[in-house]
Amino acid sequence: MARRPDFRAREIDRALTATVLDTAYADGQLTFDEHRLRSERARVAVTLSDLRRLVSDLQIDIDLPEPAPRTAEPKNRLLLALGSVMIVAVALVVFLSTRNGAEPVQAAAVVASTTTSSVAPTVPMDLPVDVTPIVARPFVFDTAAGLDDFRDRYVQRFGSSQVLEVYIQLDNNRADVYRPTPESRRERVLIAGGFEVDLDTDAPDTDDALFDWATIDSAVLAGLVAGTPEAIGVPDAAVEYVMINESRGKQRISISARNEDAEGGRVEADFAGNIVSVSR
């Protein structure tokens, strides 16, 4: 009996594979170029086999999901038999009604009455016993603990806290981190449930400089986020974005907030949390 095609990969499967590749890179099993190439392939992988090929030669402790292969089920003979009975019943009713001079019975009505009593019962379907559900830990961007976790997971994934810019969209619960490539290009890492490296890079801005993300106190940053609505004089405003970068020698944390009536403003502070300006 022929096997069904390979199972298609989910986003969580691709994210788990990326974590395995990051671990292998940190262990020295992969070079930078190998890690980059495999990570890009993992991001666009279609099936679980595609993902397994990317990690099959690595020493890893994380097992990728391996659903048991399923085979095509035989045709349900009972349903075929019921279908035959239905056809015979329709033909018989039409024949008798015509023979006796009665108004012919509509075939659709006979079909409906015949099939109503032959609906197959719903059978619950269980997952294969060897499939372990994987729950991705969500990112939290407005608390000290959440910001620490966000930075720690980024550093664990990419091996450095030296970045060009951190841009957090609180209204969409996602973030972008910009980092330099070995070719001195500006590369974006998209964070929305996982890490995804944008294949397109940009020429660096000559005004931007690398800064150490780890030098920013997450508790200070969370305090600035929480205090921005009051600071701009719009208490019911919600923070839209947080931008962190160093440009022209100035360290900047820029926080924008707005309410439903489009009233809002922006707070700018240095990396120590000292507010430099407030605008509306």
Rank of each mutant, 00 (worst) to 15 (best):
M1L: 10
A2M: 13
D6A: 14
D6T: 07
R8M: 08
R10G: 12
I12P: 05
D13Q: 02
R14I: 11
T19M: 08
T19A: 09
V20Q: 11
D22C: 01
D22V: 01
T23L: 12
D27M: 13
D33S: 14
E34H: 03
R38V: 08
S39H: 06
R41H: 14
R43A: 12
V44Q: 08
A45Q: 15
L48A: 06
L48H: 06
L51T: 06
L51H: 13
L54P: 11
V55T: 15
D63M: 09
P69N: 00
E73G: 01
E73A: 07
P74K: 07
P74C: 06
N76Q: 02
R77L: 15
G83Q: 08
M86L: 11
V88E: 07
V88N: 06
A89E: 10
V90M: 13
L92Q: 12
V94M: 15
F95I: 15
F95V: 15
R99C: 03
G101M: 07
P104I: 04
S113F: 14
T114F: 14
T114I: 10
T116D: 10
T116V: 09
V119R: 13
V119M: 09
V119N: 10
T122P: 00
V123P: 00
V123N: 03
D126Y: 04
V129F: 10
V131T: 12
T132H: 12
V135F: 04
P138D: 08
F139Q: 13
F139R: 05
T143Q: 09
A144G: 02
D149F: 02
D152L: 08
V155W: 00
R157D: 05
F158E: 04
F158V: 04
G159K: 02
S161N: 10
V163W: 04
L164R: 11
E165L: 07
V166S: 08
Y167A: 08
Y167I: 06
I168C: 02
Q169V: 05
V177Y: 02
P180A: 06
T181K: 06
T181W: 02
S184M: 12
S184P: 06
R185C: 03
R186N: 04
E187W: 12
R188S: 14
V189H: 03
L190P: 03
G193H: 01
G193A: 02
F195A: 01
F195E: 00
E196L: 11
E196N: 13
D202E: 14
P204K: 11
D207G: 13
A209L: 04
A209M: 05
D212C: 01
D212V: 04
D212P: 01
W213C: 00
A214V: 06
V220E: 03
A222I: 01
A222C: 05
V225H: 00
A226L: 11
A226N: 09
G227H: 11
T228S: 03
G233V: 09
V234A: 05
P235C: 07
A237S: 13
A238M: 12
V239M: 00
Y241P: 00
Y241I: 00
M243L: 11
I244F: 00
N245T: 08
N245G: 07
E246H: 11
R248G: 12
Q251C: 11
R258E: 15
R266K: 10
R266F: 05
D270W: 10
D270M: 09
A272N: 04
V276D: 09
S277H: 04
V278F: 09
R280C: 01
R280I: 04
